[in-house]
Design a protein around this nucleic acid. Structure first.
Length: 612
RNA sequence: GCCGACGUAGCUCAGCUGGUAGAGCAGCUGAUUCGUAAUCAGCAGGUCACGGGUUCGAAUCCCGUCGUCGGCUCCA
């Protein structure tokens, strides 16, 4: 609210105005409330405030009633331009974000005024007796706000800095019409059904257990099937693209992470080390052995991969060298950050490191971006955004390795790749990895949450730290560039995303249970026929099951549908006699009788081509 | 990590202002020849997250711990 009239959509304008109405209502009930910022957000608006009374959802009704009074009064939103001195004076008298003069100054508003650049105009908005520091814009009158509702309370640090006081943040949403508001809440209800945590439980994909630990998912057989399919996809794709697979261990000595530079930059995100005392020598030698050593659980694969690079002398002829691994990493995320599968402490990354010469960089970096696009096409992901994160010169040596020229040089290379390939991207300063600039890919889950699903990072720092070199054409040793990439992110987050993306209705190739055979009745001959089909499918590596329960056929169908089994083969006497099966597809219902061989062939083809 | 809310059978949930727990589904047993979204009956299943405290008495009140969720900072 401190910049010049920012561009706002009509809906944002309406919601921002609702935030003012919210503040008006709160002051009617709690006149001592102090307000900070109240902007519109994607799903509505919020206003941050400081108040001794803890606002709970039970207070919402009362607050909404006051808000209603304010919209009924249909006050004009009046814009008033003041001088900096006038604004400060009003703030000192407590008249900003207030209904009139108060004993205590409007402390947050005063602080906000301090932050407004001197050349910028300072504006206030008044609706009825409520006056607030605000850049606007607003709707004409409070009565123009069609329908609103408060949704939840949360806490937030002032200006998002944990050293600042914690404020109460009240969230709400608003629309032009009642119907749009109702539709919005109906949509939220629908979205809840897609929540990967709910579906993960219902479809028996994964579980968390207190004894195992927070943020450490256990994959049930049906979830593990999803993992295996993704790995198969990645292995095939990467093999074709010239990657080589490697395998590395889960722990390493402290010295590895000191060398990589992770420890100073990344320590907070790693599990604390374990101290190992080497006792004696199994070989029986009496020679002294280093006493104690600290080992860390690996939080990333790169240092291990660098060691694999270093294991052999490298020639320019071998480059680009692409080392890939689906390694397990462990990161000590803050407890408050954990969120279903989307934010966990143990993760399996679709990781690879590409070592290349500067001349090869553009082609390699671009190939990785293209890999993303191919994957997105396969999964039908249409909405995504590439974020190009760069360094901040002021934080060299602290957040970023102190190599000013290399930063500028590699950032320019990445920018060039992006521009020449015509990919849509946004550039965000001060968000790079400590070792180089990067591209993150953001996607939106069905619930509307934004996630970083993939990453493509340049690393000019670690190869040097590890002393990685290659013998170039001119017989000199040179340091390669390294690209860290994870197009499918981690299994945990990617599968969490896919669950919501498909609402649990996976395409056949991914489906945890691809086919379920449902015999009608328990006739011995029929069971034998059904089992023969089951065995045939399994011999072709199809994840097929048979429902051998004594339920009636409707009951069997119900259970299979509830588990979202992709293809159901209903088999009765009629089918058996015709050497056929009746095919039912989840989401489509009965698609009719098919000759057995044809039905099997069709299933295999659909899996082979990973058809949606 | 910080602020707040929540934590009852495998799952979804009931249990009012304290009087030592209930349903449906799933599970088990038995019966049921059933053609495209639930066949019937019986049985079994809970130290009400964990640990303290208040009380004659606590799933219900208080404190602590753990976990989950909504946010804040952070990230794949």
């Amino acid at each position: 609210m401190t910049s010049n009239t920012p561009a706002m959509t009509d809906l944002e304008r309406l919601r921002h105005s609702t935030a003012h109405v919210l503040a008006t209502a709160i002051l009617r009930i709690w006149p001592e409330a102090q307000f900070a910022a109240g902007p519109p957000v994607d799903s509505g608006f919020y206003y941050d405030l400081e108040l001794p009374h803890r606002i709970t959802p039970e207070d919402f009704e009362k607050i909404e009633a006051e808000m209603k009074n304010e919209t009924k009064a249909n006050h004009l939103f009046e814009r008033i331009v003041v001088s900096r001195e006038e604004a400060l004076e009003l703030g000192r008298r407590g008249e900003l974000a207030a209904l009139g003069s108060r004993s205590s100054p409007s402390r947050f508003k005063l602080d906000i005024i301090e932050g407004i650049p001197p050349e910028e105009e300072i504006s206030l908005y008044r609706n009825g007796s409520f006056l607030d520091l605000c850049a606007g814009p607003h709707v004409m009158r409070t009565g123009n706000i069609g329908a609103f509702k408060l949704t939840h309370v949360a806490s937030a640090y002032y200006k998002g800095d944990e050293r600042n006081p914690q404020l109460q943040r009240i969230y709400g949403t608003a629309f032009k019409t009642r119907k749009e508001l109702d539709d919005y809440f109906a949509m939220l209800e629908e979205a809840k059904k897609r929540d990967h945590r709910k579906l993960g439980k219902e479809l028996e994909l994964f579980t968390f257990d207190e004894d195992v630990g927070p943020g450490l998912p256990l994959w049930l057989p049906r979830g593990a099937a999803l993992i295996e399919e993704l790995e198969k996809l990645a292995k095939e794709t990467e093999f074709e693209a010239g990657y080589q697979r490697v395998r590395t261990v889960n722990i390493a000595r402290e010295s590895l992470y000191l060398k990589s530079g992770h420890l100073p930059y990344y320590k907070d995100s790693m599990f604390p080390p374990m101290t190992v005392e080497e006792k004696g020598n199994p070989g029986g030698s009496t020679e002294a052995i280093p006493a104690a050593d600290r080992y860390y659980l690996k939080a990333m694969n790169c240092p291990h991969h660098h060691k694999i690079y270093a294991a052999l002398p490298r020639s320019y002829r071998e480059l680009p060298l692409r080392l890939a691994e689906y390694g397990y990493c462990h990161r000590y995320e803050q407890s408050g950050e954990l969120f279903g599968l989307m934010r966990v402490r143990s993760l399996q990354m679709n990781d690879a490191h590409i070592y290349c010469t500067p001349a090869q960089f553009e082609a390699e970096f671009n190939a990785v971006n293209q890999l993303y696009l191919n994957y997105f096409k396969l999964f039908g992901i249409e909405k995504y955004m590439m974020r190009f994160s760069t360094h901040e010169a002021a934080r060299l040596g602290e957040k970023y390795v102190d190599e000013p020229e290399l930063w500028l040089q590699t950032e320019e290379m990445v920018r060039g790749v992006l521009q020449r390939s015509g990919i849509n991207y946004v550039e965000v300063p001060n968000e790079a990895a400590f070792y180089g600039p990067k591209i993150d890919v953001q996607v939106w889950s069905a619930i509307g949450r934004e996630f970083t699903i993939a990453t493509n990072q340049v690393d000019f720092a670690q190869p040097k730290r590890f002393g990685l070199t290659y013998k170039d054409r001119d017989n000199t040793e040179k340091t390669p560039l390294c690209i860290h990439r994870a197009p499918l992110g981690t299994h945990e987050r990617f599968i969490g995303f896919l669950i919501e993306h498909y609402a649990g209705n996976f395409p056949l190739w991914l489906s945890p249970e691809q086919v379920r055979i449902l015999p009608i009745g328990t006739d011995a001959q029929l069971i034998e026929y059904s089992r023969a089909i089951l065995n045939e499918l399994r011999s072709k590596l199809v994840r097929a099951e048979i429902d051998g329960s004594t339920d009636k056929i409707n009951g069997k169908i119900q259970r299979a549908e509830q588990m979202k089994v992709h293809t159901m083969l209903v088999i009765g006497r009629r089918d058996m006699e015709a050497n056929a099966v009746s095919v039912r597809v989840h989401g489509q219902g009965n698609v009719g009788e098919r000759p057995r061989d044809e039905a099997v062939a069709e299933i295999l083809e659909q899996i082979r081509t990973r058809r949606a």
